[in-house]
Amino acid sequence: MLEIENLHVSVAGKKILDGLSLSVPAGQVAAIMGPNGSGKSTLSYVIAGRADYDVTEGSIRLGGVDLLDKTAAERAALGLFLVFQYPLEIPGVATMTFLKAALNAQRKMRDEAEMAIPDFMKRVREAAARLNIPQDMLKRPVNLGFSGGEKKRMEILQMALLEPRFAILDELDSGLDIDALRICADGVNALRSKERSLLVITHYQRLLDYIVPDVVHVMSEGKIVRSGGPELALELEKSGYADYASEAA
């Protein structure tokens, strides 16, 4: 599903991803673990199509389609979704308006008809109920004044509504207490399927108790340095990242 080959990325002249390769087949839940500053968020932004990164070498493909010459919006329409580590607040834009704009923009790019408003409302309401999101939160401006947990639940709501085939979750657990984490993880697990792949980025093992990955990759200094099964996460929890850090420094 996602194929990254030899990816080199720098920001403001500083090299952050240094020949990273990664393959996530359809239906797989892959975890990326790594210390702070190893380039995990950068990787997720580059996949999602954020400007102001220089991709100097390598390729990213989703379902065989080269992503690097696509805009962020086009990538979303191709089925890519990023759960932000820090979701943005957008004052003055009601959540419902935002959701409708996103869904219909994607459908338009895929040459699909706009979703009828009653169907749309029904889908949003059902997804909100599953995630314990009160209806009046949907009338408020996007993420404005929401708690950390509310923001992350809203991310999962968007994911449920937009039905991506590849979702990246960047530090879903940051800023969440255990109850909020459980609700979010349940929401994510409900979306696991044979056709949908997930890339779960975290630097704590804790999240992986709730979203159990098929494989675990360890990232350090801009590349994948080790891959293994779920047991690798537990091992890292004990030994820490010290073994992987600063080989080159």
């Binding site: 999602a48 199509g49 954020r50 400007a51 805009t71 962020a72 919006a73 990538r75 979303a76 329409a77 979704f81 990023l82 932000f84 979701p87 943005l88 957008i90 935002f98 704009a101 996103a102 869904l103 923009a105 994607q106 790019m109 968007q158 937009l162």
Partner: peptide, 12 residues
């Protein structure tokens, strides 16, 4: 904010 919206499929 712009990137956040674009990442949801809303063209620039």
């Amino acid at each position: 904010q712009l990137f956040y919206m674009e990442s949801r499929g809303i063209p620039r």
